[in-house]
Write a protein that binds this DNA or RNA. Structure first.
Length: 902
RNA sequence: GGGCGAGUAGCUCAGUUGGUUAGAGCGCCUGCCUUACACGCAGGAUGUCGGGGGUUCGAGUCCCUCCUCGCCCACCA
């Protein structure tokens, strides 16, 4: 049989670059990633739907490793379900990412020496559209390169006309239900982005600050007495409208109702009593700045205080609404932090700065530009969250939705229980314009699904609200809007909603996941999915989160180019425990992705062996092989295959709850992707390659029926191994599978990607016993190999092995030649002549492996070696017994042992 | 300040309901280019399972306590 010719077809190492793109195109051409609404059982079809909605990547930049991880996980799951036979739909998309994208364009403009105002709103939006078309396209190309099997016909974009319609519908519906309102209150304001932010977008970070103690003179006090207030933000004192003390605070009780003179601004402000003040903190006196602090705003409301704004939107000092001339001329236009310094210096000079002490506190930063957020009194649109949160809370509490890993459920519940209203208006240009129009003539406010051109009350001219919606106001609708909502009769909505799994990172649990659940109930009266799978973060070797700005990122396309998409995917899946972070070394891609690349090469070479030895002519189906035709090795590998399928299924777990809710015993099981990967790897590498394939080497080349049996079994187990691995390594498995001899199975179809997921087929009831018998053969081989290694007998040297067995003489006799071949030795069963100089090894069944060492090893050398080892052990023993004696143990056993040994 | 998680081989992590010699991958050491694969094969070393205390015949696994990291949340100025 000429094998060299065929081996030439396949190089010794897999070259992903040549094959991946072509295979992907064949999948696309065959339409196997497209889901059919009519085939969904919910639409009268014959398949259970299984649906994943992709977390849409932001169109701000090309994808990084985090996206690589996120999409690989989703692809593994969707490909698995597709093979199982579900009508699998994965909806891809991108997110316009309002504030993030606008920041990028502004930066581009800044580099050109321009601002957005130089362009004007229309031109700015136009330019942004050009930008996102480019990056959006690049993102979709990247996803295809890593093998994403999404239904590209349904690719969604949060700012598309269809999704914009959904956004308007959602806004209007919530408004009509009284859940959206315009509020005048203190919100988080980013002075750099010049927009308001939601609570979630203003992120806390601990920082060392300063607590300034400032004296406010009491008006009319005889002895120039003053009240000392403690503040971390003296620049806001110009906006003070009162100082507050606790009503029960004996120190200050008698001052309530009097006034103090606000330094610098020289305004007289009252001393008020409010239970909000903690007498134990600072001096027990709080300055009240309603326009620049959310708590003070509440106090201001309670006491009907004025609310002067003393900063411009950009964070410079200015006399805003109701401020009169509180900000003195010399401070006007100064940045807030500069103003802080100057105010402190001024107070120092007037001896009103009493004390300065370091103070640890949390400061909020803009999640997009990291600027310190400024609390600011402002008019914004809000969503009333408590009613929306109620069903979302219930869903996780009662098991309609599960969150993996389990611990995030508590975090989710805690957040929803303390939820506050959601500020959804942003003072940006990039996003969905708020669908509210104001009549200039009669002041009417019109909230409308369609554009309004004239006031419906007085016919006067109208203007649309200048603001746009928080970018998350479109993404929270993604599971319903991508399926056709608000068209409640949309075929896709009926076929595929509710969806199944939502796979994302924990960072956006509040931003996105919890809000999607709320939207699901608010607009469809049903949870959008039953499983939330939160995976870890990709980090470098120092455990620092990978990011482009830090320069420690990895470009998935680099990895694909160097090692192939499969290597990337396998590495990521195998290395990622449930919810655990994934560490990769951006400086050593070779080492980082070696597990995946090496495994791909292994698979490739099993394929090469198979094609060279089994050939391409048809093989028999294993189903028609009679039991008495199978060798012990055949039965063993088929048993291992069954066990592996069960392991993989157990690791992947139930795809959906059996009833409508997760039962406690199934709730936290499944989606252990690394365990599934490891089960498949172990089978392919340690069982098929290391043992079974080796065991067939003497069989396939021989003439007669057993050769056909070996061909059939080897082809079958490799076929099934490829099926098991396809979700993780789609390209190489498809490539090899396409070349396998046929008919390999009854359901041979055009693509592995739609071939059936393996089902275990136990051939006999005592499969376990059969496997134990082959395990004994393997153990024997290992024992001989170990003896060879222990006595440093070179692999080239032939070695005689004698097996003495009572229980399994027949087994060893039958497999003597196999054992001999695998251990490179000549095996005799029950032979004589072991002699004194022989190595022994006892097997699990009590049988003995004996290797006569005569002529193989230099016994005097061996003897010397052993004597040295014994001497070392004696020294250790002495030291140990000495230590024991010192610690008070009186047993003389160690000494006795030493004596006995001698 | 509140809540949660983690500390197991040099590194990244598995270790199910407490039960025989604690595992994997990568790395390391020794020997092999054995005609599928040196991105490989065979063999090997390495762990007071964070510290201390307790329950138990028996604990990496349960309880208490301390230490060290990490994450989430938070209107004490």
């Amino acid at each position: 049989m000429s094998t060299t010719q065929e081996l030439h077809d396949l190089p010794a190492q897999y070259d992903p670059g040549q094959t991946e793109r072509a295979i992907y195109e064949r999948w696309i051409d065959a339409g196997i990633f497209s889901a059919d609404e009519k085939r969904s059982r919910r639409n009268g079809g014959d398949r259970d739907p299984f649906v994943i909605i992709m977390p849409p990547p932001n169109v701000t930049a090309a994808l990084h490793m985090g996206h690589g991880l996120n999409n690989t996980v989703q692809d593994v799951i969707i490909r698995w379900r597709r093979m199982v036979g579900d009508e699998a739909l994965w909806v891809p998309g991108t997110d316009h990412a309002g504030i993030a994208t606008q920041n990028i364009i502004e930066k581009q403009l800044a580099a050109e020496g321009k601002t957005k105002f130089d362009l004007g709103r229309a031109a700015f939006v136009e330019r942004t559209i050009e930008f996102v078309e480019e990056t959006g396209g690049e993102i979709l190309r990247q996803l295809r390169a890593i093998g994403v099997s999404a239904d590209w016909n349904r690719t969604a974009y949060t700012l598309s006309p269809e999704l914009s319609r959904a956004v308007r519908e959602a806004f209007v519906q919530l408004y009509e239900r009284g859940l959206i309102y315009r509020g005048h209150r203190v919100i988080h304001w980013c002075p750099r982005c010049l927009t308001s932010l939601s609570d979630e977008e203003a992120q806390h970070s601990e920082a060392m600050g300063t607590l300034y103690h400032i004296a406010y003179p009491i008006v009319g006090a005889k002895d120039n007495a003053s009240l000392t207030v403690a503040t971390t933000r003296p620049e806001t004192m110009l906006g003070d409208v009162a100082v507050a003390v606790h009503p029960e605070d004996d120190r200050y009780k008698k001052l309530i109702g009097k006034s103090v003179l606000l330094p610098i601004a020289n305004v007289e402000i009252p001393i008020i009593a409010d239970a909000y003040v903690d007498p134990a903190f600072g001096t027990g006196v709080v300055k009240i700045t309603p326009a620049h602090d959310p708590n003070d705003f509440e106090v201001g409301l309670r006491h009907k205080l004025p609310m002067p704004v003393i900063m411009a939107p950009d964070g410079t000092m200015a006399n805003g609404a109701d401020a009169g001339s509180r900000v003195p001329a010399e401070l006007l236009g100064a940045d807030r932090f500069e103003a802080r310094e100057r105010i402190i210096r001024s107070l120092e000079q007037s001896r009103q700065l009493i004390k300065v002490e370091p103070h640890q506190h949390a400061i909020r930063h803009c999640y997009r530009c990291d600027t310190v957020v400024e609390p600011r009194l402002s008019d914004q649109w809000f969503v009333k969250m408590t009613p929306l949160a109620e069903p979302a809370l219930k869903a996780v509490r009662d098991g309609t939705i599960r969150i993996l890993p389990e611990r995030w459920e508590a975090v989710y519940i805690n957040w929803l229980e303390n939820i506050r209203d959601w500020n959804i208006s942003r003072q940006l240009w990039w996003g969905h314009r708020i669908p509210v129009w104001y009549c200039d003539k009669c002041d009417k406010q019109i909230v409308s699904r369609t554009d309004v051109t004239a006031c419906d009350k007085c016919g006067g001219p109208v203007r649309q609200d200048e603001d746009v919606l928080d970018t998350w106001f479109s993404s929270w609708l993604f599971p319903i809007s991508t399926l056709g909502w608000p068209d409640k009769d949309a075929a896709a909505l009926a076929a595929f909603y509710p969806t199944d799994d939502l796979i994302t990172a924990p960072e956006i649990l509040f931003f996105w996941v919890s809000r999607m659940i709320m939207a699901g109930y608010a607009f469809m009266d049903a949870a959008p999915f039953h499983t939330v799978y939160l995976h870890g973060t990709v980090r470098d070797t120092n455990h620092v989160k990978m990011s482009k700005s830090l320069g420690n990122g990895i470009d998935p396309l680099d990895v694909v180019a160097k090692y192939g998409a499969d290597a990337l995917r396998y590495t990521v899946i195998a290395g990622m425990g449930m919810g655990a972070d994934l560490m990769l070394d951006p400086l050593n891609l070779e080492r980082s992705f070696a597990p995946g690349r090496n495994f791909a090469t292994k698979l490739w070479n099993i394929g090469r062996f198979l094609l060279a030895n089994v050939g391409t002519s048809p093989v028999r189906s294993v189903d028609e092989l009679r039991d008495n035709e199978l060798t012990l090795a055949d039965r063993w590998i088929l048993g291992r295959l069954n066990a592996t399928i069960l392991e993989a299924d157990a690791a992947l777990g139930p795809a959906r709850p059996e009833k409508r809710k997760w039962r406690p015993e199934e709730r936290y099981s499944g989606l252990r992707l690394s365990e599934y990967a490891e089960a498949a790897r172990r089978f392919v590498w340690n069982d098929v390659a290391d043992w079974f394939l080796e065991s067939t080497k003497g069989r396939i080349g021989a003439s007669g029926g057993d050769s056909e049996v070996a061909r059939a079994v080897l082809t079958h187990v490799f076929d099934y191994a490829l099926r098991l691995l396809h979700p993780i390594m789609p390209f190489i498995t498809e490539t090899l599978w396409q070349r396998l001899p046929f008919p390999v199975a009854t359901d041979r179809c055009e693509f592995l990607a739609i071939a059936s997921w393996p089902i275990p087929h136990p051939r006999s009831k005592n499969e376990g016993d059969e496997m134990a018998r082959f395990d004994l053969v393997r153990e024997t081989v290992s024992a001989v190999r170990q003896i060879r290694s222990d006595y440093a007998i070179s692999p080239g040297k032939s070695m005689d092995v004698i097996i003495q067995s009572r229980a399994n003489r027949a087994l060893f006799t039958e497999h003597a030649s196999l054992i001999g071949r695998l251990s490179r030795s000549a095996v005799k069963v029950d032979g004589q002549g072991a002699g004194a100089a022989a190595a022994h090894s006892v097997l699990a069944d009590g049988s003995e492996v004996i290797v006569p060492l005569g002529g193989l090893v230099d016994l005097t050398k061996e003897c010397r070696k052993l004597r040295t080892e014994l001497e070392q052990l004696e020294v250790q023993l002495e030291a140990l017994s000495k230590r024991l004696r010192n610690e008070g143990f009186t047993s003389r056993a160690p000494a006795n042992v030493v004596a006995a040994e001698r």
